[in-house]
Design a protein around this nucleic acid. Structure first.
Lengths: 230, 230
DNA sequence: ATAGTTTGCTGATAAATATCAATGGTCAGA
DNA sequence: TCTGACCATTGATATTTATCAGCAAACTAT
């Protein structure tokens, strides 16, 4: 038995994104008719920066990373877990993806036709406001990340990344870090080696334990302090 | 004779933001009844991060900077010139400003009641789409800046900032840099001293001339190359 | 004009961070 | 079981960048 049953239709789907609570059954049915589900193995690319963007993706299983491909390095904008939508900013501008997405774990995504979405945004003001709110929340999150990456030193940035993983993504404290060390570095805007070294320092100072991919934050207060003092 | 006449009403205002082209005269009149204009002297704060956000601002004269206050340092998200709106992401989330704004030059701003705006977004789907497009463009711009600041070295970041000033803000090539060196540093995410030093290096290499606040990019091709090679 | 304040500039130094090179571990597939 | 590929780790080193201190220049307000 799977945790979610989402294959049949959108109305009964018990994993539906909270953005849909503003839609009527008829509107949900319209979404249902213009969607399909895709499975991705860990590591597979969901969409690529620069390509056309005919669908909004909703992650229904697994974990995805959103990243901008720079020069050699990648910058991870965030991770997306069930049941969250990826609302790329290109849809209302140039119909292109402005970042790439890849599956970190084995994942599934529901792909909804962009035009159906746009239609509902025009027709249903509550839905439109909810959409704008989602996009705004995304912006605010990006601002926080922006400040962290440009104004804090490496220790503070790793601290921020660890809180993000523990509090927002995995939502537990001893957590299995399904992302790689390179991904952690790409979230924190540093080299892989630096990320590993700082993890080791935190371990030596008794702030956390690291065993393979399992991380346990023992002293959140001290980690918080490191985050705040840069 | 002033360049813009915008004091009387919104319908005839020849400096109105292009976002208004989707509005009827009646809708513009509604905006007109729920706005007022304010003048700011250079250096004055227009609104402060964390405070309530009851208005959208449209810069009608001068130049404003949007910046996030970090620890000691500021991060400038962008500059806003006439006739552009500042659509802060807090309006649909928590009614708070998530960054501060200050006048760089003597400036004027038209302040429009947020609820009037929200009302029109609900009523006029074309206007709503235009609004979403503006917000999306802002996001895309921030992504570019994000990559520049986190993945490029100082020379590339200053190059990007110079192109931004020349191409987007002042829109001419020998341009008078009305922002301070500290502002240039805050745009580029580095210390003031570093920004000054790199400007000096570019000058010595014949890429540009700097006389006081007047900057002339002599070799845009080489500057572009510096921007691209990080 | 003059004192005081801010802004721009420079050099020396220290700190932060990346790069390079090498090694061991793990896992999938022949 | 072996082999290759990839990932994690570590140490040594080089590079990048910030900080600090001092000084000149420009602007403000007596």
């Amino acid at each position: 038995m799977t945790k979610f049953s989402h294959s049949l239709n959108c109305i009964d789907c018990n994993c539906k994104s909270i953005i849909f609570k503003k839609l009527t059954d008829a509107e949900l049915e319209l979404i249902n008719q213009n969607r399909f589900e895709v499975n991705f193995k860990a590591g597979e690319i969901m969409f690529k920066q620069g390509t056309p963007s005919p669908h909004f993706l909703c992650i229904t299983k697994g974990l995805a990373k959103l990243y901008i491909e720079g020069y050699g390095k990648n910058l991870i904008l965030g991770l997306v877990k069930p049941v969250e939508y990826i609302f790329g900013p290109g849809v209302y501008v140039d119909n292109r993806h402005h970042y790439s997405a890849a599956a970190v774990e084995d994942s599934s995504a529901c792909m909804v036709d962009v035009n159906t979405y746009k239609h509902l945004i025009r027709e249903n003001p509550d839905f439109a406001e909810e959409f704008i709110k989602r996009v705004s929340l995304q912006s605010i999150f990006n601002f926080d990340q922006f400040v962290s990456l440009t104004q804090k030193q490496m220790h503070g940035r790793i601290a921020d990344a660890l809180f993000y993983l523990s509090d927002v993504i995995y939502c537990k404290n001893p957590f299995d870090m399904t992302i790689s060390r390179q991904d952690l570095a790409d979230i924190s805007g540093m080299s892989k080696e630096s990320a590993i070294r700082i993890l080791k320092e935190f371990k030596e100072e008794g702030i956390l334990t690291v065993e393979g991919n399992n991380v346990h934050i023992l002293n959140p207060a001290q980690l918080k302090k490191i985050s705040e003092t840069g």
